[in-house]
Write a protein that binds this DNA or RNA. Structure first.
Length: 492
DNA sequence: TCAACTAACACGTTTGAAACGT
DNA sequence: AACGTTTCAAACGTGTTAGTTG
């Protein structure tokens, strides 16, 4: 666990400048940090970097060591994530901002101990749909809303040496989600009733200024996808959150919330009468009843029995909340599909399924790494001890696969416009800021190409590189990932 | 009418300063 | 005086709930 929460001056400055009115000076500074890091050289993979990029690497880079290294980013508490994912993870978003639970926690290995890295997280839509909760499952309710301003959470320890990142788990505990598009706190803005997944970006860079010339490596995990909601829809998720989140202990059955309930019930006779049914016959409340009633049912001596039935229900409807995803899933030929014991073949039911496959394929199919986890949870619902979920930097072959599966868009205007000039003083580079926050669009505005809809699932894993390098690939479903800039905003 | 959203609320955890002891 | 431990209140995070909005 990262215990020191540093706030580098540069980051504070970054936040300030990003929230300031756009001036020539801020434009120039933003230009420096702007997302062309995604394009051109920076979005090349480790593999692609080697032939033609050494000259642009900052002095701190040790390309050879970097290339030889097997950088690995491991998702912590994968069982917890999976238990949520099996039901259909929901994350509350509020105007003031809400933390995620489970939190994004990762561990890193394979970094150069003395080299500095920056670690970032952003959220990307899973698909181009808006959903609604209908009885006991999520259903597509139309096209996605226009994309809110994209923001990136910069880990407060950034930049830090590899040894720092590797010595302990890296937690994004303080990352907050909001539905307030005018948010001034730098929280990540999402739309309710839309599906997202977090992306982890690792950048070797001495500071934020060198990010521009550094290589991004992006990691995603299928089990971290979630539905953004303003209120929990699936009471099984509520129960899981209560059971596992220490801040929600007050709502656990064995807890002291009885007192609270007693007070509440005494306060309103009407309400009490209204609640009488649920408080008396709580245990047989169906999942479609009032969300709170099902939890009240675990009070008292018979707490265990309803819990078991609840578990059974969870098991039965293991994938039910995501049924619609199956129906809408365009891809059914993932490498892991058809292998029931493989959690990733069965649990990742989103249309963007394949977006993870390059990694998964690499992980389970190729990598000799002992972290490959084919003995993870199965359809039985048992959560066996398993090695942490791991995403490694795709090697050559998996990268090829990735390119094959998700070739990038042909053009990356605004991405590839990065000048390849060697690092100079900040402010002298005059290319346009990357992404939606271009000169013609100020920060905090709706972003993305033609606010019409979310792009289809996009594949920001190894595709970062392939998109930048292999322009000629075409894929009808390829997202315009350039609309998800890392540095459109930063927070910590 | 209803789904989605908001704000107030109670409860528990976390945090950090003050008090205290060695 | 310096350091470590304990205590406690404020801040914060959480799900619940009733009311509001479109």
């Amino acid at each position: 666990m990262v215990t020191s929460w540093r706030r580098p001056v540069t980051i504070c400055f970054l936040s300030w400048i990003l929230s300031s009115p756009r001036t020539r000076a801020t434009e120039q500074f933003l230009d420096l940090l702007a997302c062309p890091v995604f394009g051109g050289c920076s979005m090349q993979t480790v593999r692609d970097l080697k032939p033609g990029f050494s000259g642009a690497a900052p002095p701190s880079m040790a390309p050879d060591a970097y290339l030889q290294g097997n950088i690995r980013l491991t998702l912590e508490e994968p069982e917890l994530w999976k238990s949520f994912h099996d039901i259909g993870t929901e994350m509350i978003i509020t105007k003031p901002g809400r933390r995620m639970f489970p939190h994004c926690k990762v561990s890193l290995s394979g970094l150069i101990p003395c080299a500095k890295y920056i670690l970032l997280v952003d959220m990307v839509p899973e698909d181009g749909y808006r959903y609604k909760w209908n009885k006991d499952k999520w259903e597509v309710a139309g096209k996605a809303e226009p994309q809110p301003p994209c923001r990136t959470y910069l880990h407060p320890d950034s930049p830090a040496p590899g040894s720092h990142w590797m010595k302990q788990t890296v937690s994004f505990l303080k990352l907050k989600l909001t539905n307030n598009t005018l948010d001034q706190h730098g929280h990540i803005i999402l739309h309710s009733m839309h599906r997202y997944h977090p992306r982890f970006h690792l950048v070797q860079a001495d500071d934020l200024f060198s990010v521009r010339w550094s290589v991004f490596q992006t990691f995603t995990f299928p089990e971290t996808s979630f539905m953004a909601v303003t209120a929990y829809q699936n009471n099984k998720i509520t129960k899981l959150k209560i059971d596992h989140n220490p801040f929600a202990k007050g709502f656990r059955d064995e807890g002291t919330n009885k007192k609270r309930r007693a007070i509440k019930s005494a306060a309103s006779a009407d309400k009490r009468a209204k609640m009488a049914d649920t408080s008396i016959s709580e245990e047989d409340s169906s999942t479609d009843l009032c969300r709170s009633s099902s939890y009240a049912g675990y009070e008292g001596d018979g707490a265990q029995a309803p819990k078991q039935s609840e578990d059974a229900a969870v098991k039965e409807e293991r994938y039910s909340p995501w049924t619609s995803e199956r129906e809408h899933a365009a891809r059914t030929d993932s490498p892991t599909r058809g292998d029931p014991p493989d959690v990733y073949g069965t649990e990742q039911l989103v249309p963007a399924l394949a977006s993870y496959q390059p990694y998964r394929y690499h992980e389970y199919g190729k990598s000799p790494s002992p972290t490959s986890s084919t003995s993870s949870t199965t359809g039985s619902g048992r959560f066996e001890s398993r090695v942490p979920d791991v995403a490694t930097v795709p090697d050559h072959d998996s990268l090829k696969l990735s390119q094959h599966l998700h070739p990038g868009p042909q053009d990356h205007n605004g991405v590839l416009n990065m000048t390849m000039a060697p690092p100079t003083k900040p402010g002298v580079i005059s290319h346009h800021i990357y992404g939606p926050y271009g000169p013609e669009q100020p920060l905090g505005q709706w972003s993305g190409p033609g606010a019409a809809q979310y792009p289809p699932p996009h594949h920001l894993t190894s595709d970062y590189a392939t998109q930048a390098v292999h322009h000629s690939y075409h894929h009808g479903n390829v997202a315009e990932w350039s609309q998800y800039p890392l540095f459109s905003y930063s927070c910590w």
